[in-house]
Design a protein around this nucleic acid. Structure first.
Lengths: 328, 328
DNA sequence: CTGAAAGCGCTTACAG
DNA sequence: CTGAAAGCGCTTACAG
């Protein structure tokens, strides 16, 4: 590889001068600049980032800690992070933590040793102090870490309200909510949104808890249909759960949306692939990733943040698992 | 951050000695070793990887070049790469190239400057020389780059044969194949497998080309059903295409699998989420990623490779979009 | 067995 | 405006 020394020799100047034109810093005569630029071009010189890192104690790399990239919520998020990072000249290191404390610590240590410039956290098994020990900017994505860490989420509460209202406005009178695990913030918010609407409107309802996977959701829905055959609408806390509900409905001989209306949550590509395609509350996943990354880079570059909590709006996307009596 | 100097001072030895115990290299007296180990522990010292990188011209990082992580084929692959990398102490930098030459070049340059140790290529817009200019080991994943680069693929040809045979053995007499774009190696192989079986058995068939996305597949299938209403089985070149076929079938009032049997290809999680769940040819995606990574690390660590072409077996996974007359 | 020194490729005060 | 020198944190011949 050609180094700054080679360039200096070729341009007949010192390495300091080469460095100056490289960084557009300090005085350089026109002649010297031209010679250096020519040398850089002729030798196809690219400055070595590792050497730069060592001096500056930065790396132009950011870390993305997520539970598992193969969970369909995360690819689009990761994609957004990577896109924005690339725009600003950053590279992203991806870390699947499986919500495992030990793995997370291992990553945090490794990243620290590499002078990572910042961290996006979609997982939080460690304490805030562990993250802070990195002494780099942080952003929490769809998780709350601490009041001092900027956070980006969707408005789960309002999204759930919209879905619930839609089901009721379309004539359903006995709603069920498949909620996610208690204690998971997003699941709690969606539950609250559902609850508030059915209670305010005095609509019969039942809430059951499920894990965020298709098998458990199917089982839970099967049980639900068994116990309450007259349920005529289900609001599921995720699209994957909704896919499970569809399987259960089919098995019980219930037609969606004729017998039971169904709305999911997330807006992952899966929804569109299902038949009938899934009505759902879309979270702006890409935007959430993109905004998080911009927030992180702003901090890295010492720019002021306007606010510490970005709450993005969801959008109710009506596809084929709901009836559309409103428009008939 | 505490450095090797701090450790040396604390242990009352030179930095050279600390380095020796760190790397278990060269002679160190028992006394010195004990003192250093204690210092490391007391100070919670972690050697700085950037400084090491600069000296060794390696980084303990590998690059993963893929078209787009939000394409559902890649998350599991990326997950496997990351898992294996972590085991061997490597970190992975993820690069979405969108099959765009310029972006790929941008990444290759950035990775070179970071002393990346190796590259896994699931995309190949550049010429082999561009990749070789990195002077690091390479592995091609599901793409062929050059004869000199080890390659990992699934046996698309045999997988396609198995699917086709199954459809015929289950009583279908007029098969259609939704093939992927001509020129895409995997699509070509699947097509060849299909073709060989139908021709050998003298079965009526029709082949149409589609893109690897649901909308185009649906449109193509709709058109196909229109032109050939008696088609009673479809082999789709990907699971996503198969999801499109299911939508088309529904729209045309055809029941799957009663009227039309359907088999996809890939084995992505989507298949299981569909109702009825999709029969498909499973590629061992995780294994492909894991093996690629091991191959890469073997090369990085200068170990000999047994073979340059790993072709993994596919597995026919019969779920609900096929009939099972064989067992009746 | 151990330490002083040079070097990895860069950057930036400092002196001129 | 420019170059020599020190330093980022480590590793490894070299001399002792």
């Amino acid at each position: 590889m050609t180094t700054i020394k080679d360039v200096a020799k070729y341009a007949e100047v010192s390495v300091a001068t080469v460095s100056r034109v490289l960084n557009k810093k300090g005085y350089v005569s026109k002649d010297a600049e031209v010679a250096v630029l020519k040398a850089i071009k002729d030798l196809n010189y690219k400055p070595n980032s590792v050497a730069r890192s060592l001096y500056h104690k930065t790396s132009k790399m950011i870390g993305l800690l997520i539970p598992d990239i193969s969970n369909p919520f995360f690819p689009e998020l990761a994609r957004a992070v990577e896109d924005v990072a690339l725009t600003y000249g950053y590279t992203v290191v991806i870390c699947n933590t499986d919500e495992d404390k030990r793995k997370e610590q291992q990553y945090v240590d490794a990243l620290k040793q590499k002078y990572i410039d910042g961290l996006i956290l979609s997982t939080n098994q460690l304490s805030i102090d562990d993250y802070k020990s990195l002494h780099v900017p942080l952003v929490a994505l769809d998780r709350s870490i601490s009041d001092s860490v900027p956070i980006v989420t969707a408005n789960n509460f309002i999204g759930a309200q919209q879905a619930t209202e839609y089901l009721i406005d379309n004539g359903s009178t006995f709603l069920a909510h498949l909620r996610g695990p208690v204690g998971v913030k997003t699941a709690d918010q969606r539950y609250k949104g559902f609850k508030e609407v059915v209670e305010k409107k005095g609509i019969a309802h039942v809430v059951v808890e499920s894990e965020f996977n298709i098998h458990h959701a199917k089982k839970t829905a099967l049980d639900l249909f068994e116990r309450y055959p007259s349920i005529d609408a289900i609001f599921a806390s995720s699209d994957i759960m909704a896919a499970g509900v569809m399987k259960a409905a089919k098995q019980m001989g219930k037609e969606v949306p004729t017998d039971v209306q169904l709305i999911g949550f997330d807006g992952i590509p899966l929804g569109e692939m299902l038949t009938p395609s899934l009505s759902t509350v879309i979270q702006p996943i890409y935007d959430m990733g993109a905004i998080s990354t911009r927030l992180l880079i702003k901090q890295i570059e010492k720019q002021p943040l306007e606010t510490l909590h970005y709450e993005l709006e969801t959008e109710l996307n009506i596809r084929e698992t709901t009836r559309s009596e409103q428009y008939e």
